[in-house]
Design a protein around this nucleic acid. Structure first.
Lengths: 146, 146
DNA sequence: TAACATTAAATAGCTTGCAATTAAATAGCG
DNA sequence: CGCTATTTAATTGCAAGCTATTTAATGTTA
């Protein structure tokens, strides 16, 4: 590719990444509407469904997000009665996030969401798996440069 | 692959997409800091450097964004003296966005940005082009389901 | 133990991105 | 022409996500 061409929008991987991510979020928005969750909230729920009672920083490490994003997000989820936030008794710097009954219950309804998304991609599983790995590799490289 | 794995994979792909996109934006934030641009603003500049004098909706079609996002963004760029916004004389529904001298000048300094990003990915150009095409294909499928 | 450093979370202030709605101009059609 | 439909931006109100900073708790060390 010629150097001037690199400034062309359509030649940029980064824009494909950015715009596809936004499109994916929109599909999720539709799929998650009946659960009353946003995509970010859904990610937090996935982590807590895997293992309940995690600190804000532990959640943040999984999601690559920090407390500036998570604290307000978790507070909104607390208001929605999906989870509770309490300081850890042994080390009060940590805030432990735990699911409410409603939060646990929601896992059942959420079961169909991945199906819907998979269907929306209209892609072969092998291709998606490959794409996932390429993205994770790219993410690893990019994070080194932040 | 059994069904739970399929569902898990789907979550993982979407998360890989989401988290890699955020990581990419952070690398851009660093690279664009000296230009005084955000990533979204940089995208608008790319479009206008390609072809000056475009309507808000024309820009929106390229970026998959609507006026609710673009109007405030363009206003901030107008305040920063990067561009000007004027109603089209022949059809006053359209707002034509045009580069200022400062906005045109900025293209020169922006020349190094794609190089920096390419370097940050630490990937082969061929791999990135392939990834770009896979993402564009996925985006096309997802957009059908919005 | 007192002073300092580190850590976890919260906060302030900002830009994006979106759904839903509104305002204004133009198109189309009787 | 006059009425309605369509089109383009703008607006409103919200959730994320970020940088930079602050607060509070815990570690460390002189």
């Amino acid at each position: 590719m010629n150097k001037p061409d690199m400034l062309l929008l359509d030649n940029q991987l980064c824009f494909a990444l950015y715009s596809t991510s936004l499109a994916m979020t929109k599909v999720y928005r539709k799929a998650l509407k009946k659960l009353g969750l946003t995509y970010s909230q859904y990610l937090v729920m996935l982590i807590l469904w895997e293992k309940d009672q995690q600190s804000v920083s532990a959640i943040g490490e999984r999601l690559f997000l920090d407390s500036a994003t998570l604290t307000p997000l978790l507070k909104r989820m607390e208001v929605a009665n999906l989870l509770a936030r309490h300081r850890a008794p042994n080390d009060e710097r940590f805030v432990i996030v735990s699911l409410t009954a409603k939060g646990k219950q929601l896992k059942i309804d959420a079961g169909v969401v991945p199906d819907e998304l998979l269907c929306a991609t209209a892609c072969e599983l092998d291709d998606l798996m490959s794409l996932k790995e390429q993205l994770e590799h790219l993410r690893k490289q990019l994070i080194k440069n932040i």
